[in-house]
Design a protein around this nucleic acid. Structure first.
Length: 436
DNA sequence: CCTAAACCCCTG
DNA sequence: AGGGGTTTAG
């Protein structure tokens, strides 16, 4: 099979089993990729030719990707066309290294798939249908704001909102025609994701509301302002560089899962689910399994999971306790890369998963053995403390109101989710209203 | 410590 | 009517 390299693209050998762009770029991890169908006259001539081009704007360039069963084609387009060749080569190397980082290509997905298959019969039956699904390593600020938008929402609308955020609050770096377009086709502007400083002004809330963000408008602006106020203390030297607040968010990669979660929960509009998504998809917390209502449904139906306290039907509400139970059970099943396994099963092809359930649900509830017992969970995912210590910490917060920050720092080692939320509320007061 | 309702917009 | 959630009030 001969595949010609598209003009301007470089080739990176990569089996589609290691990465499937079609599955990964549109499954609700990132909401900013544009997809273009490639108008080939006849695919029967070359059935393996790429059908789509994917594009996204990164800082000063637009990255374009195409894929065949064994090759990833990539190129970047820059605003200034006449660079000297050496500079050009540098930038291309930069683009390749960004791709390797963004798709985490050093992680062998085939290894993981075979591990999960041994650990989980349900996964074993499904794995062939979900090739090449991996967790992206996204920019933390973009990830945080995108998932604040995700509450009570669907992928289509989140995508529209994130797009609106970019077109409204950042300048386009370049305008390009769609791939394989006729001459004279209208150019399309490409906007990078806006930095915190562009979203922190109070008027931003109203603008976002007119753009259809609803109650999330305030969350976005408050979160951006909190980041800018706390971390953008010195000016950013270059427009191409990240702001200090963005760099600070990235440092959460160095922290433990529970520490990073505590930091994220301080932001307005960020609860457990959003925090976990941000940690999994941008902060290297690969064991974290975010739980939403859909995961809950599948968990009870296919894995025999149900809240230990309430043995009601599938109609139970998602309490913090239930969330913890479900999340830790999946970590117990899938292990170190549990979040990645979750991604394969739940955020790719939900309909295929549902149909699988219809086929096999009646004969035998083939739940994995680890379901029945409480699995051992790493300390990082479920911090525990003596009840006495916890109580002391909680009461301290209620009494002391003036030195909240110091108190929080002291007790932030542990605590239930509810307690963390309480602490967050007080922290927000300090962070957003210094006068009080 | 835990539960329930509102929130804003889009889709069925 | 209800949704891949969070906040606020009880």
């Amino acid at each position: 099979m001969i595949i010609s390299i598209p003009v301007g693209f470089r080739a990176l050998p990569l089996p589609v089993a290691q990465l499937s762009l079609a599955a990964v770029l549109q499954c609700g991890q990132s909401f900013r990729w544009s997809v273009f169908p490639l108008p080939y006259p006849d695919f029967s001539v070359n059935p393996d030719a790429p059908r789509h081009e994917y594009r996204v704007c990164l800082r000063d360039r637009v990255v374009c990707l195409r894929q065949t069963p064994d090759t990833l084609f990539y190129r970047a387009v820059y605003p200034s066309p006449s660079l000297d060749p050496k500079e050009e080569a540098n930038k291309d190397a930069e683009t390749l290294s960004w791709i390797r980082d963004y798709f985490q290509l050093d992680v062998d997905l085939l290894d993981l798939y075979s591990q999960w298959s041994k650990l989980d019969p349900v996964f074993h039956k499904l794995k062939d249908r979900f090739e090449g699904i991996r967790v992206l390593r996204q920019d933390p600020f973009e990830c945080l704001l995108s998932f604040i938008c995700s509450s009570n929402n669907n992928i289509t609308r989140i995508t529209k909102m994130v797009r609106a955020l970019c077109t409204q609050f950042s300048s386009p770096v370049i305008s390009l025609p769609p791939p394989n377009a006729e001459p004279g086709t209208e150019l399309e502007p490409y906007h990078p994701f806006p930095p915190p400083s562009a979203l922190s002004a109070p008027e931003v809330t109203a603008t976002l509301r007119t753009l259809g963000f609803g109650y999330r408008a305030e969350f976005i602006q408050k979160t951006a302002k909190m980041l800018a106020d706390n971390h953008n203390t010195s000016a950013t030297s270059s427009a191409k560089m990240q702001e200090p607040a963005e760099l600070w968010l990235t440092t959460l990669r160095q922290m433990s899962t529970s520490e990073a979660r505590n930091e994220l929960l301080k932001f307005m509009g960020v609860g457990r689910k959003v925090a976990d998504c941000v940690m999994l998809m941008s902060l290297d917390k690969r064991e974290v399994v975010p739980v939403d209502t859909h995961v809950h449904q599948i968990a009870t139906k296919h894995y025999g999971m149900s809240s230990s306290s309430k043995s009601k039907a599938v109609k139970t509400t998602m309490t913090p306790k239930l969330y913890d139970e479900l999340s830790s059970k999946f970590v117990g099943i899938w292990g170190e890369y549990a979040g990645w396994a979750h991604c394969v099963l739940f955020t790719s092809d939900l309909k295929a998963f549902a149909s699988y359930g219809l086929e096999t649900s009646s004969p035998s509830p083939s739940a994995p053995p680890s379901m029945s017992t409480t699995p051992t969970i790493s300390a990082a995912s479920t911090p525990s403390a003596s009840p006495a210590k916890r109580k002391r910490a909680a009461s301290k917060i209620n009494v002391v109101k003036t030195e909240v920050v110091a108190t929080v720092a002291e007790v932030s080692e542990d605590g239930s989710l509810a307690e963390r939320v309480k602490r967050r509320r007080q922290l927000r007061v300090v962070a957003t209203d210094p006068s009080k």
